[in-house]
Design a protein around this nucleic acid. Sequence first.
RNA 1: GGCCCGUUGGUGAAACGGUUAACACACAUGCCUUUCACGCAUGCAUUUAUGGGUUCAAAUCCCGUACGGGUCACCA
Length: 554
Amino acid sequence: MTNKDLADLLLPNVSSDVEYYEKKYPKRNLDKKAIVTRFAPSPTGFVHMGSLFASFVERKAAKDTNGVFYLRIEDTDQKRKVENGVSGIINDLHNFDIDIDEGMISETEEIGAYGPYIQSKRKEIYQTYVKHLIEQGLAYPCFCSHEQIEETRQIQEKRKQRIGYYGRYAKCRRLTMDEIAEKVKNGEPYIIRFKSPGSFDNKIKVHDLIRGDIEFPENDIDDVIMKSDGLPTYHFAHVIDDHLMHTTHVIRGDEWVSSLPKHIQMFKMMGFEPPKYAHLSPIMKEEDGKKRKLSKRKDPEAAVSFYHEKGIPVAAVKLYLMTIANTNFEQWYDANKDKKLDDFKFDFKKVSASGALFDVDKLYNISKNYISYLKAEEVYDSLLEWANDYDGEFAKLLVKYKQYCINVFNIEREQKKPRKDYACYSMIKSQIWYMFDELYDNVEHYEFQKISDPEQISQILDLYINKYYSEDDDKETWFSKMKELASDLGYAKEVKEYKNNPDAYKGHVGDISMVLRVALTSKSTTPDLYEIMKLLGSKRVIQRYNKFIKGNLS
RNA sequence: GGCCCGUUGGUGAAACGGUUAACACACAUGCCUUUCACGCAUGCAUUUAUGGGUUCAAAUCCCGUACGGGUCACCA
């Protein structure tokens, strides 16, 4: 029996040949420097921060070079499959503005000429190449059971030898054709392993775009390439897919670095040119003074949906990811505030080889800055979009009082030094609720500061309404009246005056305006009081003040 | 245990053999100010995990140690 016969015996239904696929997926017609790369998740239904980071980098690298970024679904492990697992991923990517050039666009549909982009639909392709390897004598069936494998593992451990299917431990490699034929005839289950040509004593150097040269012992393990269900393992699928899809750069998590010798070896065995590799370090989290990988199970902030719910602008998340991705980005951005993220070119050399700690404070800071430079209307639109998803009641108010809301967002905005108080959209309601009667009506607690006696406060309000308050005043007049009011009551008109001579006054104008602020909003910290009064309008100002007076004098 | 990678302040990090170890976030204090925020100013690593070595000179090069991470599946 020849190798060819063996191949036919093991894979009788595979009729196409390797040349067919090589022709079907021709080289891409792209610029030499163009990067073709992919995001290749399992269909688990969601994307976590680590993979969002990877896909962000992948897309950026492709976009910068007019290359191709595609989405390939790696579903060769049927156990891992989740209902609607593909659409969940697509949705998360979409929410973060990571659009693809090729690949899956829904649970079943795809775009692009190098598909199928879901591995379970590529079975025929993998098997064709497996068959090809068997024909060349480079792969063989293995009949070892799980128990047998476990047994050798224990022996290897006892002998303090390396664990794995290699050398003298690769029993099935030595099976004769007749023995194989016999076992197949008897219906013994098997898998296919490739014959590693490597030796552990040889050293090989592998280049990683981020880590530089890494030296490994050569791979000598006969890894499984086809499982008993006829689907390939990750390693084999990676080699076939990235070859056929003409991936130029494999950008993935660093859990794969140790398989590098294996992958390179397989590419060579297949006669394919290996792609370039870049292994990203995982995003870390600090807990009890120790760093550990950000975990989707333990850390809510690991789920990408967390940021969507929080209402952190996508642009801000991208800026943050970029600062982790390229260590020189932050300074570049600082010096080029007028430029866009697209103007910055991603550089593999500027990726840190050690894992970055995920810094939520920093993200919020970036987000705060970003939102502060938006126009009021943009804030309104984004906030409404967020509220439609997560706070229907608030969304109704936003719609009902559209222009009013925009005016509220415009307080101390669109100026050289805008206010920076919104870190994310989910926080805004808690910062401006008092501007809506619907939310303010049942207020009970007032955050009065220095002056807190209700009697006294009521007197101040009364005097203010009757003697000074006029809706039409401009800011200067408004403030000079405030000073008059302070003066009437024995408070200094200027803070400095008070500081110079504290004994001569009961306090200063700030103490008085604080009373007016709190009685109007219940809060001690608000944006500019004048603007707030202006927006609320005299009717509501007087109403709110009278409500307070009545509530405390009767 | 074998093999690989990493380690600069609370955090992200710059410095790629040569003056006082950039910058940003966070924190603290002060100024400004009708509150807050903004802004401004100042402070925050006697030292680059650690021990040796090479050198006139080391965070930077070499070796050991410690710590952290990854991997060693018919999972990806």
